[in-house]
Amino acid sequence: MIEMKDGHFYGVTIDILNRAAPLMLLAIGMTLVIATKGIDISVGSMIAISGAVVASLIGGKLEYVDGVKTLITLVPMPVAIITALLVTTLLGMWNGLLISKVGIQPIVATLILLVAGRGIAQLITQGQIITVYYKPFQFIGTGYILGLPFSLFVVGLVFGITFYAVRKTALGMFIESIGINAVASRFAGIKVSKYIFSVYAFSGLCAGLAGLIICSNVSSADGNNAGLFIELDAILAVSLGGNSLDGGRFSLVGSLIGALVIQSITTTIYALGVPPEITLVVKSIVVIIICLLQSAKFRKIVFSKWAQKRGIPSEKNAAKL
């Protein structure tokens, strides 16, 4: 599955890992949001904004300097990247503000940005698809370090920091506690609104990073299609990872695996030569199955019947014995 070529690892596994990078980043942020009993459906739009900001700041002017074709960036790349991340973090804070302070339901609050986000992205790119020719920027999405895609290192870093923060400090316990019972958490002295605000800001940051990778991957910013419907994939990844959409206990590793499963489905279908859009059907079936398994009522209805059906023959067996 994995082989070395030109000092890079190649193969289906690497391909899946590489392509899943943005989704994994989103899933990390989304896991924390969902753990607080919330949801963030604006991440797709934030990806578009992040890409638009970075692409328009780096710019794509090709000029001849001293007869040599060179590319002029409008601002240095690090500044552009930091600005893009800052913008999406601020947007995440906006979501957090609406939810924790104004008291609007998470779906509704993030719906605003979902609707506005693509418009804002278009506004930034002036309705164009901006192509980035600047080579160093392409490294983020397509470069390799030590034979592995660079994007994986980004995911690894974010995952590492998040994992440390939630498991080696009290953050994870507070988030779970809020998701299970926000009232009791407040009574125990946890500053509930502060943490809810923070997880949305963090989700914005993750979306910003994912946007950079996606933008760099295709070397262009497309306000209309970058990250379209990816919010749904992110939610799916989180719940595939065994996390309850009702909040509480969460597993970051589970969400990453969920993201990889989704990417594997896509890649497999691609490899089978079936149109990739059909993954949607598969995904919908997966969502339905997960939902049914998480539904207490469903389990009660189905499994009690099973137990009955199995219970009767087992009694018969017992009688025989």
Binding site: L171, E176, S185, A188, G248, R249
Partner: peptide, 29 residues
């Protein structure tokens, strides 16, 4: 039930919750 216990957390976590909240998230026990 509604204002005391965090039902899906362990006994250990329920015990340290208020102290940890008092200390803040950084000063991890």
């Amino acid at each position: 039930k509604t204002e005391g216990i965090i039902e899906n957390l362990s006994v250990r976590e329920n015990i340290i919750l208020a102290l940890q909240a008092k200390l803040g998230w950084m000063k991890h026990i």
